[in-house]
């Protein structure tokens, strides 16, 4: 897959949605890149966390992913 194009598509998707929602399940990213294998998308998303583009948000039982530093939770957690 074209990694850079994939990363760009993911960032654009998140920016477009950022008004209403800042965090998504891993599966939502599969729909951003429907032609890629899910395992490749998973690896790409995890790589983007390492790049510090994305960050995880965990409920403890499940994980959401969004653009680093966005969303209202950051404020709620005194970690902004």
């Amino acid at each position: 897959m074209d990694k850079e194009a994939g990363k760009k598509a993911i960032v654009e998707f998140l920016q477009k949605k950022s008004k209403s929602k800042s965090k998504f399940y891993l599966k939502d990213f599969y729909e951003v890149l429907p032609n890629e294998k899910v395992r490749d998308v998973k690896n790409l998303v995890n790589e983007m966390v390492k790049d510090e583009t994305l960050e995880y948000w965990s409920s403890g039982s499940t994980t959401l992913i969004g653009l680093k530093g966005t969303g209202k939770q950051a404020g709620a957690e005194d970690e902004a």
């Binding site: 965090k23 409920s59 969303g71 209202k72």
Partner: peptide
Amino acid sequence: DKMCEIPLAVAA
């Protein structure tokens, strides 16, 4: 609305 993202609360 200040503390939470409403769509996430709905989806939860």
